[in-house]
Simulated scan of single mutants.
Amino acid sequence: MTLDDLRILTVVCRTGSLSAAARELSCTQSAVSQHVKRLERELGLSLLERHTRGVVPTPAGRTLSAAVTAGLGCIDHALRQLEEAARGERGSVRITTGATTVRHFMAAAVVDFRRRFPLASLEFQTETSSRGCFDALAAGGVDLAWITLGPASPAAEQHPVVELPWSLAVSASDPLAARAVLAPVDLLDARLIGLPRNSTSRLQLADWLADSGIQPVFDTSVADWDTAILLAELGLGHAVVPTLPAWSGPGHPNLRLIPIPALPALTAGWAVRRWDALSPLARAFAETVTRHCGPRNP
């Protein structure tokens, strides 16, 4: 049993395909299969169920893959810390987050961080959901994840940074545009633009509206809040969105963001494996972002 055997098993379990794992690892499908078979022979257990459309881990495969993923994440993190200690301020910080996060929450912090650590590099990895960010953390692929905070997870610590009140985004020509505030009941018959069903923010929004007796209808799906707000500004629907500062002001004369104060604010912030195990550079970047976001907290 080698470290390569274990690494390859986790990639196969994550991708659900020997061929997809081979592409990701830049090797042949036969080589991937040989690594998995060697593990199965040594353990005396089947780790994968082969199907015509791919592979599915057996209970033994899931158990081993989960343990390996956690262990490799810790090993990779320790190796990166040692490398960064040897290089001083020449290390890198790996961050996973949504497509528009840097624009809305990190632009000033990135400039500030680069001024203070000119030899450090920042590596951003885009994910489409908080679940994807958690997976990247667990696999050791990133140091920090900026997410919509949700239920506590044993796999990661969550550190709230900013609270974002909800607003209804509408075109300036919409009948609701003249309202100063809205209540959840005003959304009773609304057909909304929303994020994908599995996104943390959409799930939280749906739960909070349900507590007010509102069952929202999402008839348009988009990948990020910026797209939802843009469609609303163009008059193509309504979007219940976090109040993002970049969309306020004279730059968007055809957009109105009407507060919905009865809805609990959305909380965004950092997820990390262990805060006290972050490299000095990663901690410095996280603290820089937190400091620049601070004035936005209600």
Rank of each mutant, 00 (worst) to 15 (best):
H104M: 03
L64W: 00
P57F: 01
L82K: 07
L72N: 03
E84V: 07
G88F: 02
F113I: 12
L119P: 05
R53L: 11
G71K: 01
L119Y: 10
A109N: 06
M106S: 14
E89N: 10
T63R: 15
A60R: 03
T96N: 05
I75E: 07
A107W: 12
L119N: 15
A108E: 12
T52Q: 09
T101A: 15
V68C: 01
G98N: 00
V55M: 00
V93D: 08
L79M: 15
R53E: 09
A78H: 14
R90A: 15
A78E: 10
P57G: 00
G98H: 03
G54Y: 02
A85G: 04
C74T: 15
A85W: 15
V93L: 06
V68Q: 00
L64M: 03
H104L: 12
E89D: 15
G98C: 01
R116P: 06
C74F: 13
R103L: 11
G91C: 04
V56W: 05
T96K: 03
L79Q: 12
F105Y: 11
H104G: 08
V68L: 04
C74Y: 14
V55H: 01
I75M: 09
V111G: 10
G91V: 10
A85F: 09
V110N: 08
A120C: 06
A109V: 05
H77Q: 11
T58N: 01
L119D: 13
E83D: 12
A107I: 07
H77T: 12
L82A: 13
V102C: 13
L64R: 00
V68M: 02
I75C: 06
L72H: 04
R62D: 12
E83N: 08
E84L: 07
R62I: 10
E83M: 06
D76A: 08
A120E: 05
R90F: 10
A66M: 05
F113H: 05
A86K: 04
R115P: 10
F113L: 10
R87I: 07
A67R: 00
A120W: 02
A86S: 08
R103V: 13
L79E: 14
S65H: 07
L119W: 08
F113T: 13
I95Y: 11
E83C: 10
A109I: 05
V110S: 08
